[in-house]
Simulated assay, not measured.
Amino acid sequence: MDIELEKKQTLRREEAAQQLRDIADELASGNEINMEQNGLQFTVKVPDEVTMKVEVEIEDDEREFEIKLSW
């Protein structure tokens, strides 16, 4: 079974930073990440080692900074 969730929001920079801290705290304190969407909660188990990819993309009128964890 394949499941893909995408959550896209417009936030103030400080709010985005807080969400990243919350995710980091979940990673540091246990082996799972929780995500809620449309009233449903999903829990993803995370192993002790992950691959982390950081990507910066600069185009004429748009900037993108992407962090991806995979295992």
Rank of each mutant, 00 (worst) to 15 (best):
M1E: 11
M1D: 08
M1N: 06
D2W: 04
D2N: 11
I3Q: 01
I3F: 05
I3D: 07
E4D: 15
E4L: 06
E4A: 07
L5R: 02
L5I: 13
E6T: 07
E6I: 05
K7M: 08
K8Q: 08
K8E: 06
Q9I: 05
T10L: 15
E14T: 13
A17C: 12
A17G: 11
E26G: 04
E26T: 03
E26D: 11
L27Y: 04
S29E: 04
G30Q: 01
N31C: 05
N31V: 08
E32S: 14
I33D: 00
I33H: 01
M35I: 09
Q37N: 06
N38F: 14
N38E: 14
N38W: 06
G39L: 03
L40R: 15
L40F: 07
F42H: 04
V44M: 01
D48Q: 07
D48S: 10
D48N: 07
T51V: 08
T51L: 11
T51R: 12
M52L: 09
M52T: 08
M52D: 06
M52I: 13
K53A: 11
V54L: 15
I58S: 14
D60N: 12
D60L: 13
D60P: 01
E62Y: 05
R63K: 15
F65I: 14
I67S: 10
K68Q: 13
K68P: 01
L69D: 00
L69Q: 01
S70K: 14
